[in-house]
Design a protein around this nucleic acid. Structure first.
Lengths: 343, 343
DNA sequence: ATAGATGCAAACCCTTTGCACATTA
DNA sequence: TAATGTGCAAAGGGTTTGCATCTAT
């Protein structure tokens, strides 16, 4: 896992030269957790006993933003705030108008809609800002928060694990059911094998989750950071239901599995990649790889099944070949048998 | 329909006194369609040959914002812009970073998620800002837009009608199917009657849609303003599918209808109410009323059915009474028959 | 008569910049 | 030594405000 200084080194642009003051400012800044105004940073620096001019602070903030170390956010009150991106993914904000505190969250569903809207207008989005203004719990009740705020980094990892676990669970349900339904003995074995794998992964993930929450007892009580509603019941839930439909044979089951694994792979890859280096990112990317492996296995199996069926009934009706994990139709291997088809 | 001056009068706060200059500024401002910076408004005023000081413009803008005539928006480039709210509902923005043009849209799905997120944090939202920055079509292709931009007001009305029509269509499908399925002759008649009503309303809405688009040939080509994805296939679509499930009797059908009508009523009411006075708002609110009428009819019918069944089989298993249109359990009328139940 | 609206210029706030000086490679 | 970073103070842009002067009610 990246240390703060490695993080800075990775982002330091070429051609600049080093300076103790800048390093000091960056260091102080990275140690903060929330959003700072330029002025807040000046006071921080001053309090940590260093005499650095306001202009340098501004220039360093700009430097950090350009380097990708910091993000500039605008809460609409006429001054900019800055947040660092070290183990801190891009996100949206809830902003309390009365105490100016802010809370962070991320919603994959909102991001998906944003994509849709932009597409509909043929607009190429580069960055989206969503701010919910209002009154926070404390300002309303007057009571202090019952749970102290933990660093976002941990909550993020927790939520990433939760999403992965939900997906794994629904995957397990899917393969268990599919293996029960399967008629073809070879297909049955594949589903059983996948179910076993899911069970194992699930155990690993749950252990990791336990480890994380044991180390930080307050962690489970923290409010959510990731709002991945469409994924929160597991990306295979729909597939499980589809299995229940009458007339679903081995081939259909494979196809559904392929679709779910592809969707799942894409989901975890997409989010993993857009996150900053962090445990959450690692969880997403590792999981994406696993899903890709399952995907590949299922596709191989699908091809084999089609080949066997074609051998039995050479004139059977043609079958669409599953597309690759990234959506394009995969060039068919030498397995042969499947015929190109419409629909 | 409200005229601009009525609109202003409705918003004018008590206790102020009238002034020709302010009136003039407001008038000029309301005649604009996009977003103006304070300075743009100053130039506009100057070009319309009036010598009004910058300070007065700023003060009037503030006055309008407080009165609800204008909204202040922040595109993140260090200056505020203002948009009026006359026939112009709150919305989100797509902002082109290269030409600074902005495009407006509204998504009920995003707003629903925002609610969820705020709830999860026990945060009381008062206002949400969503801005998608990026590059617009023209700036990318270099070509001028093929369709000239029409006033938002018309696009809004068009989209409101589209949502209403989709709902009406799905409602028609629902009642047609339900009437075919119904066993009880009285239930059948009710469903038939509702299907007939839907057909009639649908015709009215479609005529209105045609009228609107005939008057403005470019209207249909305008990009969408309302992104009501979850509603765009009609709020009864799920209900139609549920009817197809095995074992759905008259009572279940009524129940599904009640649920759909309630959801539909709420949806149209909620949005209708939050829109500024406009044709779109009227469409939403009128439609909400219709849905409420259907809801009431179905509930009466449900009670009657339960009563009849109870008379036949006095010891039948108990049945939940449908809740009122606003979600709370309705106080039962004198119809009697239905027994309080769990579940 | 008096609260409220207007004009002018100055003040404000946050941020950027010009220029002389210091530092790093 | 040549390019880059720093400090200071001044400028910048957008917005607000104090105060004297009008003007509606």
């Amino acid at each position: 896992m990246l240390s703060p200084s490695q993080f800075i080194e990775n982002h330091r642009p070429a051609g600049g030269r080093r300076s103790g003051k800048r390093d000091f400012i960056v260091d102080v800044f990275l140690r903060q957790s929330g959003h700072l105004g330029a002025d807040d940073l000046v006071s921080l620096i001053r309090s940590e006993d260093a005499r650095i001019s306001r202009a340098t602070i501004y220039r360093t903030l700009q430097w950090m933003v350009e380097a990708g170390i910091a993000r500039r956010v605008d809460f609409g009150d006429g001054k900019y705030r800055f947040e660092h991106s070290y183990r801190h993914p891009r996100h949206f904000h809830l902003i309390c108008k009365s105490c100016q505190q802010s809370f962070e969250f991320l919603s994959s569903d909102i991001e998906a809609i944003i994509e849709d809207v932009a597409n509909a207008r043929r607009f190429t989005p580069s960055e989206s800002v969503l701010q919910i203004y209002g009154t926070c719990e404390q300002c309303q009740t007057g009571l202090p928060s019952s749970v102290p705020r933990l660093p976002l980094e941990k909550v993020f990892a927790r939520d990433a694990l939760r999403v992965a676990i939900a997906t794994e669970r629904s995957g397990l349900a899917f393969y268990t059911r599919a293996s029960r339904l399967a008629r073809d003995p070879r297909g049955k074995r594949v589903f059983e094998r996948l179910a076993a794998e899911e069970r194992e992964h699930l155990a690993t993930l749950e252990a990791r989750y336990k480890e994380l929450t044991d180390a930080e007892p307050q962690l489970e009580a923290q409010p959510a950071f990731l709002f991945f509603k469409s994924a929160s019941n597991g990306l295979f839930s729909a597939g499980v239901e589809e299995l229940a439909a009458p007339g679903v044979g081995d081939r259909e089951a494979l196809r559904i599995g392929i679709r779910c694994e592809r969707a799942s792979h894409r989901f975890f890859k997409q989010y993993g990649e857009r996150f900053e280096e962090s445990e959450g990112r690692r969880i997403f990317l590792e999981f994406a790889d696993e899903e890709r492996d399952h995907f590949d296995l299922l596709v191989r199996e699908f091809r084999a099944l089609v080949a066997r069926q074609a051998a039995k009934r050479p004139r059977s009706r043609s079958v669409a070949s599953p597309r690759g994990v990234d959506g394009a139709a995969k060039p068919r291997g030498k397995t042969g048998g499947a015929r190109k088809s419409s629909r």
